[in-house]
Design a protein around this nucleic acid. Structure first.
Lengths: 225, 225
DNA sequence: TTAATCATAAAAATCGATAATTAAGAAGAA
DNA sequence: TTCTTCTTAATTATCGATTTTTATGATTAA
């Protein structure tokens, strides 16, 4: 419902959110130079606020900066994608094992409802608007799964890695290919394993899920290169 | 040798490094409000650069910001310390298992030399200057251990968690208590296990090492509260 | 007294302009 | 031509001033 409705107070935060969004969605290409003045005009926000927003994104790993040479969108590479995926698989597995052990009823409910919303969105005819909604729902589903672990830091790490991965997926426009494939089913498997409190099954499922997505991205990228 | 010698080009970066240092060392207390003007005078750097530096520290988790209410040093709590430690143990274990599998000769050499420097520093009489050197060496030793994993992202996560943990240690001034204890020996055990390529022993050792340090911090904090 | 309203002071956020630095291209020497 | 060196243009980094927002404290009504 509320995409960017919650119009954040400060311009810096607005710039931060829009830049983050545009980088993750691929509207700003990897390695692209981010000229302050150009961004300032594009977003109708002063240079100071833009710089501050970019600075926040640097530690996030979506933007790089070199002193006296300005900012660039973080580059992408097959190597990084593979490393990112492997790291993310391990960290999420860690989180999921904890979630199986610590997750309460609220967690179960959250996972189920997120899974349901996601599957409903996937069964509808594709449209530009739907993609946005799907992306939000997809993010929430994955966050819901790990949220049961009860460890704020673990969740934070998962979120960080998710955002980075998400950009790769968008750059390859894999969601189109994924649709109709066994990915929808994949989410169901994850949710079921969570309900069954089967940690091993969950770990296997997440590994397959992330691994498959990455494989598709790599193939897609190879062919378009 | 070069503490902050490598006088970075931009004032923003300088401010970033000094603020990060001052927060980790505890010179800026947890939850303390960070008033722009005050910092601007303290570091003799304009408000814009200060704000930018603080923004970078936000995603790092050392500073918090609330729109229209400015910045504060991230608060501390027993709960966060425990969560942080548990998360860090798991992530480092993940890294160490990879390092045992992938680490090359260069890795072994690095670990050994860092361990040696550390132990030498620990055998010398304590002084203000030595503490700084020890802190650098300690950081490098831990980074060396995980660096063998060959996964940039895993290393990045370890570094993030290290910095956060380091602050807790400094706030409790545990290094004084640790000295002469079996912590020096602990580092030796870690290095030995790495050389022996004994992943299980390494994991056990890192868990004990981090766990013990945290235990000391919690006790220290409890008594001083 | 207590709560609410308003006025004032303090601080954060933002802008526009300036200084410093780098990149690009032209002119001249080998 | 090819490589320097210099000049100019573009861009980043930085500052000081202005605007906006929040916090503080006083004043008044209940």
């Amino acid at each position: 419902m509320d995409l960017i409705t919650a119009s954040s107070r400060s311009l810096t935060t607005q710039a931060f959110e829009r830049l983050q969004h545009d980088i993750i969605r691929g509207h700003l290409a990897p390695s692209e130079r981010l000229r302050i003045q150009a961004l300032s005009e594009r977003y109708q926000i002063g240079a100071t606020a833009i710089r501050e927003a970019l600075s926040r994104l640097v530690t996030e790993g979506l933007v790089e900066s070199e002193d006296q040479r300005g900012f660039t969108v973080a580059p992408v590479s097959r190597e990084e994608l593979l490393d990112l995926t492997q790291t993310r698989i391990k960290v999420e597995q860690m989180a999921l094992r904890l979630a199986v052990a610590n997750g309460d009823l609220e967690w179960e409910t959250l996972v189920l409802s997120c899974c349901h919303r996601l599957s409903r969105l996937e069964s509808q005819p594709w449209s530009e608007e739907l993609v946005s909604n799907w992306m939000v729902a997809h993010r929430q589903f994955h966050e819901a799964l790990v949220s049961g672990c009860g460890s704020p830091w673990t969740v934070k790490l998962c979120r960080l890695l998710y955002d980075k991965s998400e950009r790769y997926r968008n750059l390859a426009a894999v969601e189109v290919k994924e649709r109709g494939r066994n990915v929808t089913n994949n989410h169901k498997i994850l949710a079921d394993a969570a309900m069954a409190r089967d940690a091993d099954a969950l770990c296997r499922a997440i590994e397959e899920h992330l691994g498959l997505t990455t494989k598709l991205i790599v193939e897609q990228t190879k062919s378009s290169k």
